Structures are given as C-alpha cells and as structure tokens.
Simulated scan of single mutants.
Amino acid sequence: MTRLTLSIAMGDYDRTRPIHDGRAPIDGVEPVTMLLSPEEMFFRAFRHQPFDVSELSLSSYCVKLAQGDCPYVGIPVFLSRAFRHSSIYIRTDRGIEAPQDLRGKRIGLAEWQLTANVWVRGILEGYGVAPSEIDWVRGGMHKPGRPEKIPVALPDDITLSPAPEGATLDEMLRAGEIDGYIGPRSLRCFDEGHPKVRRLFSDGVAAASEHYRRTGIFPIMHLLGIRRDLADCHPWLAGALFKSFERARSMACEALSDTSATKVTMPFVEDILETGRTLAGGAELWTYGVPGNEMVLETFLDLHHRQGLSPRRLSLGELFHPSAYESFSL
C-alpha cells in the first residue's frame, strides 16, 4: 500500500516529538514534519495554507470558521493548553494592585485575536472588568508593525489603537507609555527584571488554581487542523491523526511520571505533577478529544463571540471533523 505523504507543522513539545521521531507512527501516512514556532506556523497556515496538517491557534481557527472560509478542519488534539493568569503584566507605578484597577488603563497586546488574549479578557470579565473599559494598544512586541494575521472587525465599544509608527510594546512599557501588557509571551523588560514591571498576579499558580477549582476550566490554546480538501478525499485521515497524536501525548505523560531521571530540565517535577493531579481530583488535566472538554470549548466560543472575533456564535458541533465526536472502546 502506498503511504500518503503529508507535511505536518507543529511545535517542538514532548507531546509532538514521538510524531517527529517516528515513535508514534501515523497509520497510512509518511509524515514530513516541521517543528516551528506558533507565530510562524499560524501566520503561514492562515495566510498561505502551505501545510497539509498544522497546529492552529484556536482563536484564529474560529475567526476563519465563523467567516465561512476556513481552509482547515479541526481535530480535537489540543497541543497547547495553559492557565493565563501569568500573562498579565503591569507597571508598578500606576496604582494597579487588582484586576479592577485596569479600568481606564492603556494595555498593550500583539494581536486582539490571540487565543491567550481571549482567555485573559475572559479572566478579567470574571473580576467585573469588561474589554470596553480598557484602552487597548496593538503593536509588535520587539519589532514594530506586527499585523493581525487575519483581519477582524471589533465591536464599536472597543478602543483599539495602533502603537506609534516605529514603536514596540516593549519600549512603550519600559517608558511608561502604556500601563501594562497581555500576551502568551513575556516582554524583554520583564525578563530582564525592569524595576517597574511585574505580573498582575504575583502568585499565578495560586490564582489559576483557584480559578480552576471554581470553574473547572483548563484553557485550550491550540488544536490540530487538516486541510479540508485532504480530509474530504481521505475520510480515514482524521481518525489516524487523532490516534497517533493521542499516543504521543500518552508517551509524554508516561515519561514525565518517570522521575528516576527527570525528562525535562526543571527541578521539582514530581511535586508539580502531584499539584496538578490534586487540582484535578486525580483525573487527567491535559486531555484530547471532545468528551470531557465540552465546557471549556463552549466557554471559549462564548468569549470569542462576545469579544467580536466571531460575528456569530459558533456551535461545538462545527468545530471538528465529524469523526472526532466519538471513538471506539473495548
């Protein structure tokens, strides 16, 4: 049987390396894998569709889906999940001590549509701070002029202005020209220990844990997508990809649990794993598939629509390939 040669773009994670190195083969597929940064993957995928299979931003995927011209169909392989309380940075000289103090402040972001920023704005809503109560400034983090990868039309009550020509968000936060910043990556001023820049939540783990205990939400950032024409031509492909990526995820989890010699360059791995298991009540936190993730996905779809990114509220049944909503069992 001739195997289907597919280009696969994904991040370099413990949960994708078994795909990349062949330990988790894909039935019927000869993969040509590329380990890329999220920014490069998503920009290329949504602008030019050069990949047969690609990791995708959940938010940008929903933007294109709601617009009716998404070139990819999703598979519920959630290659990135992250609590985002640690993604809010503030100036220490602006009287910002709590989320409510962000009202009326100028807050920078790289793109309105970034999935992390959708979740952060949802977190702030939980504290009673609506997106319309903040003056947003969009720009490049360390290079000026970053565009939205997909054009979006925002609600009339949202104030979003571009950074001055030639300016970066890092420079603006250093100079005090903005009061804070939200995003999945930190700015260099924070990494370098700028004395007037810190995270809003000093203990992000505690804040996120409290949020999870209250809501049950472990935010989903990225999913896997197949080009629609391929999925239509090869109806078996979605299931084969899900099976392989789920196997790769399981292999990564098994490796993390083997603490005889830790598989990541970080101390206290066993303690952090125990913290996560305790938080989830002994269940797995990082899961793939629709079952068990319905509430997280529905919450995201609500936020996405309210924040003006999807002109209509998408339904859960639209998000993924039809074969993704059920699986066999023994």
Rank of each mutant, 00 (worst) to 15 (best):
S186K: 02
L4T: 09
D52A: 10
I178K: 02
G145H: 07
D258F: 02
G104Q: 01
R84Q: 13
R174Y: 09
V53H: 03
D271S: 13
L309C: 06
L36N: 02
R188C: 10
V296D: 15
E284P: 09
H142K: 12
E294A: 04
A248V: 04
D93Q: 05
L237E: 01
D93S: 09
L169N: 04
A206N: 11
F218D: 15
G239H: 00
G126Y: 02
T278I: 03
L124R: 01
S323G: 01
V29I: 00
F46M: 14
W286G: 07
E326I: 07
W119S: 02
P71D: 15
I182K: 05
L256N: 03
E326T: 11
Y181A: 08
A98I: 08
R213L: 13
M34E: 14
Y61F: 12
R91I: 08
L330I: 13
V53N: 03
F42K: 10
Y127S: 15
R313D: 11
F43S: 15
C62L: 03
A261L: 10
T278A: 14
R44F: 08
D191H: 03
E39P: 01
E55R: 04
D203S: 04
I96Q: 11
H20W: 12
R214T: 15
R198M: 12
R138M: 14
F201H: 09
T215D: 08
G183T: 07
R138F: 08
D27I: 04
H304D: 02
I134Y: 00
Q100L: 11
E298Y: 04
F242N: 01
S329N: 14
Q49M: 14
S244C: 02
L273G: 03
E294D: 11
G140Q: 08
S37I: 03
R47Y: 06
R17L: 12
L4C: 05
L187M: 07
R213P: 04
P99G: 10
L223Q: 10
A163Q: 00
S186G: 10
R313A: 11
K143S: 15
P291H: 08
P76E: 07
P322L: 05
A82W: 08
V29C: 02
I134S: 06
Y288D: 15
D52F: 05
W112R: 07
A45P: 05
T168I: 04
P131C: 07
L79W: 03
R188P: 00
R138N: 09
L237D: 01
L173E: 11
R15H: 10
P131E: 09
H48Y: 15
Y212L: 03
V29W: 00
E133Y: 06
W136Q: 04
D14K: 00
L230K: 07
T287Q: 12
G282V: 06
A130I: 01
D302T: 13
G74V: 02
E246L: 09
M221R: 01
E274D: 14
A240P: 00
P71F: 12
L256K: 06
L256W: 08
A130K: 00
K263I: 15
S250T: 12
D271P: 01
T287A: 10
L223G: 08
S250A: 14
L273M: 10
P31A: 04
D179T: 04
P322R: 05
T168Y: 11
A252F: 05
A163T: 11
M295W: 10
T159R: 14
G74M: 00
S323R: 02
G166K: 04
L58Y: 06
M172E: 13
R17G: 08
D203W: 06
R249Y: 12
P25M: 00
G292I: 05
P18M: 03
E298C: 05
S186L: 08
